[in-house]
Design a binder for these strands. Structure first.
Length: 306
DNA sequence: GTATGATCGTAGGTGCAAGA
DNA sequence: TCTTGCACCTACGATCATAC
């Protein structure tokens, strides 16, 4: 993409590099606010066609200026719908050639189909869909906040807290960083990968300072769980905690914290802690069979804390 | 040098819907 | 009824950083 010019594999002096530099110069000459061109500079060519990215910039600008949650929701759905990546997430741009340099035919078809879509048309379809939804009559509020803040100052008095923290070391903010940037309307720098000497911008184009959940970091997870339990206990309401059971005898990837340890922490804050194993459920197996280690024994567990 | 932890790049099985 | 295409999203292996 344009933001990574000079660090990519394109040979200096090639016509593609010349075109990219000229495009960048023309964008700068327009004198637009940097946040207003962030899609085309950061995600154009990487996750969207340049034309789609330009349209997205315009749509996102409109949505943010309006302050309308419906417009913003339709914008984010449009970005999510258009993104040309593996699995429709924002951590894995398409790699159109295999390791031998041969173009992947099915990927080429996918690129042509997805990058030919009009952002405006997709946006209008989502807008019509969301505008036609009935309005919920029950009291509710959506909050974007750190869980500690949300528990310390709840927007509404809850009757129960349901928590679904991550349980592996994978930070899922990687998969939504572009939507975060579109929603915030800023112009973040892109992080550099720790691979290759640390001088190459991350292939996923991650925004600097993206959220890293303490539940995914082994050294921080115990304090995070303690804060969660303490925060809910202070509200004097029950807690339903979703976690993943894990049998250390199986080959599956260990959880950041063992279930027994989580239960032990819960018991420090609640008189009654029950564990319900959802035996009939298994996580979807989303990997090649050879890598799909031991889905059995890693089923969903609910901690009922009172 | 080794162990441990953290980050990044990556693959693809499953279930559903649409089309043949 | 069968086939095909697609969205979903988990979690692996490789690599690097840090602590000892």
């Amino acid at each position: 993409n344009l933001t990574s010019l000079g660090t990519e594999e394109v040979a200096a002096g090639s016509s593609l590099m010349d075109a990219a530099r000229e495009a960048q110069a023309r964008i700068e000459a327009l004198g637009l606010p940097s946040a207003g061109t962030v899609c085309v500079r950061h995600f154009g060519g990487q996750y969207f066609s340049y034309a789609q990215a330009v349209e997205l910039d315009a749509i996102a600008d409109l949505a943010r200026d309006s302050g309308s949650s419906v417009l913003l929701a339709a914008t984010l759905s449009t970005a999510s719908h258009l993104v040309n990546s593996i699995g429709k997430q924002f951590a894995q741009p398409i790699r159109p050639r295999d390791k031998f340099g041969t173009p992947k035919r099915h990927v080429v078809r996918k690129i042509i189909a997805e990058r030919g879509l009009s952002a405006r048309s997709v946006f209008m379809a989502y807008l019509r869909q969301y505008e036609s939804l009935s309005i919920a009559r029950r009291d509710h509020v959506a909050v974007r906040a750190d869980f500690r803040e949300a528990l310390a100052k709840p927007a509404l008095k809850p009757s129960v807290v349901y928590a679904d923290p991550p349980y592996t070391r994978d930070h899922y903010s990687r998969f939504y960083h572009s939507l975060e940037t579109i929603a915030l309307g800023d112009d973040p720098s892109i992080t550099k990968s720790n691979l290759g000497g640390g001088n190459i911008k991350s292939r996923g184009g991650y925004r600097a300072g993206r959220h890293q959940s303490p539940f995914c970091i082994k050294s921080e997870a115990p304090a995070a769980f303690s804060a969660l339990f303490a925060g809910v206990a202070t509200l004097q309401v029950p807690l339903v905690l979703s976690y993943s059971g894990y049998d250390p005898n199986m080959e599956a990837r260990p959880r950041v914290m063992a279930l027994d340890t989580v239960i032990g922490l819960a018991k420090q804050h609640f008189k009654d802690v029950r564990v319900e194993q959802l035996a009939s459920l298994e996580h979807m197996k989303l990997n090649t069979t050879s890598l799909n280690k031991a889905a059995k024994g890693t089923t969903e567990v609910l901690l009922l804390c009172r």
